[in-house]
């Protein structure tokens, strides 16, 4: 998006906040919205200790389709792909190998417990663990992008183990069709 679009978007949201939900927060003064000095476009990829760095982001912007593949679940405070979840990863690997044009975003999530910043790292490690499993299954790492939402997007809004176990997860978003 251009700077102009962002300023417009900020204005629209600002107006919406003033006349919409913002009315309930009587103490909040509506801000003017932030301008944009410059945009650093998608950063370059990393190299990694072992040449295992992530590819750059270009190619992953666009409509991503959720829910084509089953979600991989994790234990508390763990980024290990469990034996019972391994078949889900293999299914995605088969699809990617059969569809050379497809790319995938792996979105890692955590439950609500623990600090938000630590959970961001934990969610990313879950996505990276699935990435590593896909690589072992023969998928080129350059076709995968990881993302961590940390604890910000729970699948189940509850506050017990039943909810938490559904929230510790990696979701696949595949871009590109058969």
């Amino acid at each position: 998006m251009t700077a102009k679009t962002w300023i417009m978007a900020a204005l629209v949201v600002s107006v919406a906040v003033t006349f919409g939900t913002g009315c309930k927060r009587t103490k909040v003064k509506p801000g003017s919205g932030l301008g944009q000095n410059s945009e650093l476009l998608n950063g370059t990829g990393g190299t990694g200790l072992d040449g295992n760095g992530l590819p750059g982001r270009p190619g992953f912007d666009g409509a991503l389709v959720n829910g084509q593949f089953p979600t991989v679940f994790f234990d508390f405070d763990s980024a290990q792909v469990k034996e019972g979840e391994r078949a889900k990863v293999a299914q995605v690997a088969e699809y990617l190998k059969a569809n050379a044009g497809a790319t995938v975003v792996l979105s890692g999530h955590t439950d609500e417990r623990g600090s938000q910043e630590y959970n961001t790292s934990l969610g990313e490690n879950r996505a990276l663990a699935v990435r590593e499993a896909l690589t072992q299954d023969g998928v080129d790492a350059a076709r995968m992008q990881t993302r961590s939402m940390g604890e910000e997007q729970p699948k189940n809004p509850g506050h017990d183990e039943a909810a938490w176990s559904q929230n510790r997860r990696v979701e696949f978003q595949v871009l590109g069709s058969k």
């Binding site: 000095n37 998608n42 950063g43 992530l54 982001r57 961590s148």
Partner: peptide, 9 residues
């Protein structure tokens, strides 16, 4: 200003 937008987190 965006000062970091690297792949991953």
């Amino acid at each position: 200003t965006v000062i970091a937008a690297y792949p991953g987190i």
